[in-house]
Structures are given as structure tokens and as C-alpha cells.
Design a protein around this nucleic acid. Structure first.
Length: 468
RNA sequence: GGUGCCAUAGCCAAGCGGUAAGGCCAAGGUCUGCAAAACCUUUAUUCCCCGGUUCAAAUCCGGGUGGCACCUCCA
């Protein structure tokens, strides 16, 4: 498999540290609010990467954190007059509602910053003892970026460029040895949660928690580290600096970053205020459509958010789901008696081709856009197979493959539920009316069935009922 | 100012040296009592513009134009 590595800016052949095992880490949410579509993109992307690696036979240890202590958390808690912990508990719970809805598998480890203080202090201490970090009185413990000769290797920035930049860093220069130095431990301010440390009461800086959690749960060097592109600098760059200085070895071999979700061509973000939470979107489109939409473009390309685009994804996904339902219906139908040998062969070959092409596309830097094309190709072959009377066994092969590859993408095809006896009776009554050519009555019953939440369609193999 | 990314049909989107995938929408057809679903056909002589390299370029190089992102909390 090839993965685009931000470190090298090329698609590199993926090789694990340990054969058959992958250790990966992705930056998780700061739990002070519901998350929005832009936040959802990395969750879905790295869940898909994880699922694919597992599909390819790797044993994956996947760690994704909860940032449950930072400025925004404190602000939110103060606004509501509750504790930071209350906010965290609430939005971690809400996170799971949406993340589970989007069918993101639970990571192997989901540590919280506040439960990793010991590990965090361990890294701060290692840096301080080496003289890489220094104290600014009344402020915090800072990392000296000039102490790392390859600082900037991820973002490909060098310190001179950064210093020359028009950023805000200059404004907060006082006390720092260099504009790029960053806090790894912040001293306590009145009314803020704090923990004891060798430098006094305080709380962790932003970047340090990830370094600590990676070390604690996965080790000093991991295979893959992921996150959104906006985290490349300064967050990931600083994580690298801290971890590598403290541990004396490489933090991660592959750095994978997803592009943004845009609204009218601009990045969806909390600061711009142009965001849509998953909780809101799901009022209009089901979770599986949102996931399918995210995967319909390559993860390194921006995707634009709009109602129209979601609608198109919904229609497309519907077609795939309908295909699965049609296959299942015919396989289970007594009236379907397919026996055409060439049709059977054709669809079985199509299933195999879809599989091979799917793997090739996913191997190429997780090209889910092309992988979805393979699904459509299989759908068309399967639909044709039904028309051409392929055997039930062949249809089952197609259905199994369809479930297999959509499953790797975490795309849920709505499963047909058991039809209540009441509905089945109505369907029979309608069939009788149709046989008697009483179409008015047949249509009346169909409307009745529809009003009860089911659809009935007439196929050459009898009526097919589905829950709407 | 520095550093990157992007520009392909009405919309979305792959392809990244070998002669334009796929999806949505639209039109016509087949099937059907009508629907629904499905299938078939049609929809870019052409990939922002100008040069160059090559037998061959949407794909590589140079120069434009337009858009976005990062350098500051941010997925």
C-alpha cells in the first residue's frame, strides 16, 4: 500500500515497524461542543484507513484522544457555571452519538488528557532536565525550538521564515527565547483546573498531551500519525519536536493529513462560523449518507458541503442499497429460478474484478473515490445478473462481495427488516385485487401500505416489500 | 512577505506520459395495468490560458490568470 507522507511530500510505500502490526494515532476532538462536518472528516477518514488496514490483515492498534482540558473547555465551563469535567463528560457522550452514527469503530484506546497527566509531566521533565525546556516565571514551561536541529521538517518551514511571518506569535513574544517557542506546561491561573508538577500547579499545553498519550499507549515510535491539514503546523510539528527530543527517536514514520470540508469554497471552521454540526445535518440526511459523502472524494482533496451534494450522495447510496435489497429479495424468492450459466459466470467474474480493483484503488493512498466506482460497477453487474437470470448462488456471490467492500468503507446498507403480518396481508389482498384486474382497489391498498411506512413494488418474481 | 495545494462535462469527481472512469441531474427507449426498481442509448475531438520537452501531455517543465489553505485557536 502507498500512503502520501507529509514528511516526504510523496506517496511512499507503507512498511510497518513490526510485521503485520500497525500502530496509529489520530488527533481527536476537543470536547466542548458537538462536532461539525469538518471535524467529522478525519474521524471518518482514519476510521476507514484503520478498517482497510485490518481488511488487509494487519493487527491495528488505534489511539484517538479526547482533549478535555484547554482554554475553550475552561471558557465553556465558566459560561455555563459548571466544571470543566462536566463539559467533558457531556460532550464525550455526545461525541459517541455522532461517531457511532457515522459508523466509526471505537478506537483501541481513547485516552483523555486529564487522565494522562503523569505521562505529560514525564515528558516535560525529560525536556526540562535536558535543558531543552525553560521556565518563564508566572507563565509556564516552554520548549526551545532552536534545540532541535530539524525543527520544521514536517511543515517544511524553517525558523527564519516563521520569524519573518506576519503571524500573531510576535505579539506574544515577551519572555520567550524565540517566537516559535511554545508552552508545554501552563502555570495555574485563578479559577482554572490544575495539577501538581515539579514546576508548580498548572495544566498541560496543547501539543504535549498527544506526545504523552502516544508514548503511553503505543510507544516511542509509531507507524502512522494522522489529523487535519491545519494541524501540520504548529501542532504536529511541535509534537514531533517534544517527543523526539524527549525520546531520542522518531515519533512517527508516516504523517497522513486530510483536506478540509469547504462551504462556498471556504474552509468550514468554528472561527469563521460557517459550520454545520453533524447533529444538525442528520436532521436532513442519515448518518450513512454523511459518511458516504465524505468518502466520495479523495481525502487529500477539499470537498464542498452543500445540500445539493448531500442529496446526490443520498441518491447514489440509495441505488447501492436498493441493489443489495433486490439481490436479497430474489435469492429468497421462491418465484426466482435463475439458471443461466453465462449470466452466472459473468456476475461472479464481476464480483472478483470489483474486489481486485477495489483493493488496487485503496492501496493507492486510500483512493475511496475510485473504490466507490468499483461498487457502482458491481451494482450494475448485479442488477444485470438478475435480469439475465443468473443463479441464486451467483447472486449470493455478488451480494457477499457488495457487503464486503461496502463494509470496509464502513458504509451501511439499510438492512431489510422483517415485514409485519399486517403488511404481508395487505400485500396479498392487493395481489388478489390485481389478479381480478381491480386496479383501483390495488392502488388503494398500495396507498394504504405506503401510509403505514412500507413500499411495495411489483417485480417479475412477485411483490417486493420494503420499509421506507 | 514566506510555504503549499487546486483549476477536468449542468453539478460532483477520478485519472497524473499512451490517446477523457464513475456518480448526480437531464433527454429518449425497453419492461410495467399504473407505479417503483432496473437495463439500454444520448450528454467534454477535450481537461483555465500561453509557451516548451516528447513519436505521444489533462498528465512533465517554464510563465501567466483565478481560487483555497497554513504561517494564530482550528479537523
Amino acid at each position: 500500500m502507498k500512503l502520501f507522507n507529509t514528511l516526504t511530500r510523496t506517496k511512499d510505500e507503507f512498511k510497518t515497524i513490526e510485521p503485520g502490526k500497525v500502530k496509529m494515532y489520530a488527533c481527536g476532538p476537543t470536547v466542548y461542543n458537538y462536532f461539525h462536518l469538518g471535524n467529522a472528516r478525519p474521524f471518518v477518514t482514519f476510521d476507514t484507513l484503520r478498517r482497510y488496514l485490518e481488511y488487509r490483515g494487519y493487527e491495528v492498534e488505534f489511539c484517538q484522544n479526547f482533549t478535555d482540558i484547554d482554554d475553550k473547555m475552561i471558557k465553556r465551563a465558566n459560561e455555563e457555571g459548571v466544571t470543566v469535567k462536566d463539559i467533558a463528560e457531556r460532550y464525550i457522550k455526545e461525541y459517541y452519538v455522532d461517531a457511532d452514527g457515522l459508523n466509526c469503530k471505537r478506537p483501541t484506546y481513547q485516552p483523555r488528557a486529564t487522565e494522562s497527566i503523569g505521562a505529560i509531566i514525564g515528558i516535560v521533565k525529560a525536556l526540562y532536565d535536558q535543558g531543552i525546556a525553560y521556565v518563564i516565571e508566572g507563565d509556564g514551561v516552554y520548549y526551545d525550538v532552536t534545540k532541535k536541529e530539524d525543527y520544521g521538517k514536517l511543515s517544511h518551514y524553517n525558523l527564519d521564515e516563521l520569524n519573518a511571518g506576519g503571524g500573531e506569535r510576535k505579539a506574544s513574544y515577551e519572555g520567550k527565547k524565540n517566537p516559535g517557542d511554545f508552552a508545554i506546561w501552563k502555570f495555574k491561573k485563578e479559577g482554572e483546573p490544575s495539577w501538581n508538577s515539579p514546576w508548580g500547579e498548572g495544566r498541560p499545553g496543547w501539543h504535549i498531551e498527544c506526545s504523552a498519550m502516544i508514548k503511553k499507549h503505543l510507544g516511542n515510535t509509531i507507524d502512522i500519525h494522522g489529523g487535519g491539514q491545519d494541524l501540520i503546523f504548529p501542532h504536529h510539528e511541535n509534537e514531533i519536536a517534544q517527543s523526539e527530543s524527549a525520546n531520542g527517536c522518531t515519533l512517527a514514520n508516516y504523517w497522513v493529513h486530510n483536506a478540509f470540508v469547504n462551504v462556498d469554497g471556504e474552509k468550514m471552521s468554528k472561527s469563521l462560523g460557517n459550520f454545520f454540526t453533524i447533529r444538525d445535518i442528520v436532521k436532513h440526511f442519515p448518518y450513512e449518507v454523511i459518511r458516504f459523502f465524505i468518502l466520495s472524494g479523495h481525502y487529500r482533496m477539499p470537498i464542498n458541503f452543500s445540500d445539493e451534494l448531500l442529496k446526490a450522495s443520498q441518491t447514489g447510496l440509495q441505488r447501492i442499497a436498493t441493489c443489495a435489497a433486490n439481490l436479497k429479495f430474489n435469492i429468497e424468492s421462491d418465484a426466482y429460478n435463475g439458471d443461466d450459466a453465462s449470466a452466472s459466470e459473468a456476475v461472479k467474474a464481476a464480483a472478483q474484478e470489483a474486489h481486485d480493483s477495489f483493493v488496487a484503488h485503496m492501496d493507492d493512498d486510500l483512493n475511496t473515490a475510485d473504490a466507490i466506482t468499483d461498487i457502482y460497477t458491481l451494482v450494475k453487474a448485479a442488477n444485470t445478473a438478475i435480469d439475465n437470470k443468473a443463479s441464486k448462488e451467483a447472486l449470493q456471490v455478488a451480494l457477499d462481495m457488495l457487503n464486503e467492500i461496502t463494509g470496509v468503507l464502513g458504509i451501511v446498507l439499510k438492512v431489510e427488516e422483517d415485514i409485519p403480518a399486517e403488511i404481508t396481508e395487505l400485500v396479498e389482498q392487493r395481489a388478489a385485487a390485481k389478479k381480478a384486474k381491480d386496479f383501483a382497489e390495488a392502488d388503494r391498498i398500495r396507498d394504504l401500505i405506503t401510509s403505514k411506512g412500507y413500499s411495495v413494488k411489483d417485480t417479475p418474481n412477485g411483490p417486493q416489500v420494503e420499509k421506507l
